[in-house]
Each structure stands twice: as structure tokens, then as C-alpha cells.
Write a protein that binds this DNA or RNA. Structure first.
Lengths: 250, 250
DNA sequence: CGTTGACTTGAACGATATCAAACAGGGTGG
DNA sequence: CCACCCTGTTTGATATCGTTCAAGTCAACG
């Protein structure tokens, strides 16, 4: 999937309104009053991006912020020889962009189809200064992201391949909207579509594609998970999967 | 080095004043006015901790914040079987504590002797609300920490042992005060004392003690670094060390 | 001196990477 | 409709880096 150039911010669709926004209560704008949301709405530009669309490039200038309305965005960092690490996964209601810097510290790329609510950087920063409590909310978001990234450091530095995969599947299942539980499946067996390819999972966990594939095949063979195609996954044995996130190596 | 219980916040030394504080301009309090610093000074309690002193415990309640005046603090996370990962290293002028949470998301432990300037949580949060621009500064700190932790995720997930060690030594050399360049050594050959033991370096880099030791011995044998004892390190060939932080594996 | 703790070194092992090939599904053009 | 390719994934065989286990060194200290 070839990545494309950063999209043009100018072309936009203003038809969508904040008061009908699905992530309104969870996103940072949830901290705003009715009047403030109206002001924010005025500077909002909606974007619909195809999978693979580059949103931000490492070390390059960014001139906007965004909320994710739907879809999944990956934040990545690369070494010179092409090795890649996903350093963050962003889901609907997450905030995109690095305040107080002109250059992005990472790449951001649409993983699925993505619907963004974007704001011009300067305009947005003006509103942040003006709106009581808005920066506070963004600060809280950032602290949560920092906690999550430290959790991930523990995984990257100290967990085995099996533990990494189990942790990843549970993390994703928590954040993905579940697809309709068609059939007579047990409700304790959530089904969802993996947003990431095997290669992307590998880049997230610090593994290779092959190791990811083998680990997933393993879980399938043990009937801990089920797969319909490559992407649709059912957790068949949740307790066992939770166990696998941390195996005692005494 | 057995870790001790969290210290008692009540016993304190008020003799020290902010206006003579060595990290005043670099720390978060640098954003404050003269009058505000005076107010902050009133609630500050100074602490001098021995190496190994536990400062915060994962999942346990914290009732204070602190600035590091001198020394090094490690933030760690553990798995049930004892595997440990250092998820942050804090140096003088860094801020310690997790705003807007009652429970610490990690352990914090003094690595060297540490001089802290502590503040009661409730009192401090009151001043944060009151002082224009103080929260803003803390927000910026947090964003920088997040950037650093993502940089570290790239290292943990994708770098080889050699690259990890080289990156670590450069990172530490940047943040440690250099010891006097005694002798006729080239000024481009900085000397400093490693704040971490081999075991701690291993926990920081997601390696074992033995691998760390071997990698350091390697660098010494290649005359890229020099060692006086186990802790005092001289960078003999800076360009070569920088090269090693990222080796092309094409 | 003998003990202790931190570090180093060596040898063998094993988890994960690497290399290579086969496989599956989806689209395209004949 | 089928043959073909294209891309993503799985599977197998082998190699390798880093771990594990086991001694051995060294300096500090009682």
C-alpha cells in the first residue's frame, strides 16, 4: 500500500456540524460550552482520507490540528535503513497534532478510511488561549497518552512475542467498535476487525511479519481466537488470552 | 541495593530559597513571576534522599509533586514475575508526579543521591489554577516527555544491542553534568559518571546485564570509549559513537 | 584475609529473525 | 469463465543475536 503525499487542507466540507458529531462528548471539544463549540465549528474543515494517506511527516512542518471522527491513524518513526516503529495508535475522539512545535515529531498515516475534523493551527491556538479549560483538557489527553506510551515501553522492552500479541489483541479489542455479533456466538466472545495488517502489527510490537503470523496461527490452533479471513477476529477464550499477556518466567 | 519505603513528607528543611535555586530557570517554576515564586517557596519542602530510596510506587497513592534539584530519578514498571523496564529517567529541573491522578502509574526511585523540592499535592494544584501560565508550562514539559518516550519506543522496538548502548551513552552524556576534564584530554572527549548500574542500564534498554557488559567492553576494546573504574566514562571517539546509534542493515 | 556485591567473560541454548517458498483471495484482461 | 498476476499471509528451514547458566575477576570493606 503506497503512501501518498500529505493532503491539501484547503479543500473541505463544512456541511457537518459539531452538534451531531459522534465523538463530541469524548473528544477534547467535550470540555467546551455550547457557544465555544459553535466558534470551533466555524474553523473546522472535514477531511475524508483513504487508507495509506499520509497526514503528517516526521520533521516536516504541520499547519493544522485534528480530531479523529472515525477510522484509525498510526504514528510512526523510522530509522535511516527503513526499520519502522509505530509509536502510537489513534482512534476516534483522539486528538492529532503536536502543540507548541512547528515540526511534527513523527509520521501520521491513515490506517483505515479516516474522517478528520481539522483546524488551522494558528486559528486553533487562538481559541485554545481564549477558551477556559480547553488547554486543560488537551493537557489531560497528553498525560493519558504518556501513560499509554510508557505501558508500551514495558511491552517493547520486556515482553515475549506471545505476550506482545496477546496484549495487542486485547488493547485493540478494547478500542475497536465491535461488529454485530451475528450467529449464535457467546456475547463474551467479542468480534472485531483488525485495523492493522500483519506488517503493521509487527511494526507496532517490534517484531517481524513472520513472527506475528506464527503467533496468531498459534492462538488460532489453541482455539483462543478465531479468524474469519485475515482481518475479522473473534476472542474465543478471553481469560486465557488475558493470562497470556503476562506469563510468569520464574 | 535494597529499595526502602516511601519517605515521610512531613520532615522538611525550609532553609533553601527559590531565588538561589540552581534549576530555577530551567524548571517549570521558571514560568512564574517573582511574587508567584515566593508563594511557591512557601509550600516547598526540601528532601535529600539516598540512592535506592523509593519515591513513588506504581498503583499507590501519591500526595505530592516535586522538582528535581540534583541527582537522577528512574521511573520503572514491573511485570508480575519481576521483569522490570525503566520508562523514564529524570534529571535536575525535571518535574516529578502525575497531575490529575491520585495513583502513580509507575514507580519512582532515587538512582543517585537526590535533592527534591516537594509540594503538597492539594496546595500545589491550587497554585497551578491560580498562576497564569503555570499549567501551560507543565503541559509543555509533558509534551516533551511524550516525545522522548516515543523516541525510546523506537529504540526498544527496533534497535540492536549495540545501537541501544550507543544511543544510551549519548543520551546520558547530554544530560549529565560533565566532570572536570582533568589531564590533557581533548575537550571533545567528554567525561562523566554513569548514574546507572549495569543492571539499571539493562532495565532501561530492554537487555540483560551480561549483554550490556559485553557491549560496553566492546566499545572499550575499540577505543570508542574509555572507562576509569566501572562508572566514570570518557567518550574517545564521538563521531564513531554517533554512527553506532543507527547502523544501516540493508 | 575472607566475604560480599558489582561486573566481566565464556559456553551453550533458544527465541526470534532471516531467507525462501508456497498459498489464498481479489482483481483484470482475454 | 478461466488464466494470470498481485499483494498479503502462512509455513518451513536455517541462522543469529541476545539470553541463560556458570565461573571467574575485582574492589571495597569488615
Amino acid at each position: 500500500m503506497a503512501t501518498q503525499n500529505t493532503f491539501d487542507l484547503a479543500t473541505n466540507d463544512r456541511a457537518l456540524r459539531c452538534d451531531t458529531c459522534g465523538v463530541r462528548h469524548k473528544a477534547a471539544c467535550g470540555a467546551l460550552s455550547q457557544a465555544e463549540v459553535f466558534r470551533l465549528n466555524e474553523i473546522a474543515h472535514h477531511k475524508f482520507l483513504p487508507p495509506g494517506q499520509m497526514i503528517l511527516s516526521d520533521h516536516s512542518e504541520m499547519n493544522f490540528f485534528a480530531n479523529i471522527i472515525s477510522g484509525v491513524v498510526k504514528l510512526t518513526k523510522n530509522l535511516a535503513d527503513g526499520r519502522q516503529q509505530i509509536v502510537g495508535l489513534q482512534f476516534p475522539s483522539d486528538f492529532l497534532g503536536r502543540p507548541f512545535r512547528t515540526e511534527s515529531p513523527y509520521n501520521a498515516e491513515a490506517v483505515t478510511e479516516v474522517h478528520l475534523c481539522t483546524y488551522n493551527k494558528a486559528q486553533f491556538e487562538r481559541l485554545v488561549k481564549e477558551f477556559e479549560g480547553f488547554e486543560h483538557r488537551l493537557f489531560q489527553n497528553t498525560l493519558d497518552e504518556l501513560d499509554a506510551s510508557r505501558e508500551w515501553m514495558l511491552l517493547l522492552g520486556r515482553k515475549s512475542a506471545t505476550e506482545k500479541i496477546a496484549s495487542f489483541l486485547l488493547m485493540v479489542s478494547k478500542r475497536m467498535e465491535m461488529v454485530g455479533c451475528k450467529g449464535a456466538v457467546n456475547p463474551s466472545q467479542p468480534s472485531f476487525t483488525l485495523p492493522l495488517s500483519r506488517a503493521e502489527i509487527a511494526d507496532f510490537l517490534g517484531l517481524t511479519i513472520e513472527t506475528v503470523s506464527r503467533q496468531i496461527s498459534n492462538l488460532k490452533a489453541q482455539k483462543i481466537i478465531g479468524l474469519q479471513g485475515n482481518r475479522v477476529l473473534t476472542i474465543l477464550d478471553l481469560p486465557r488470552l488475558v493470562q497470556l499477556t503476562e506469563i510468569d518466567h520464574d
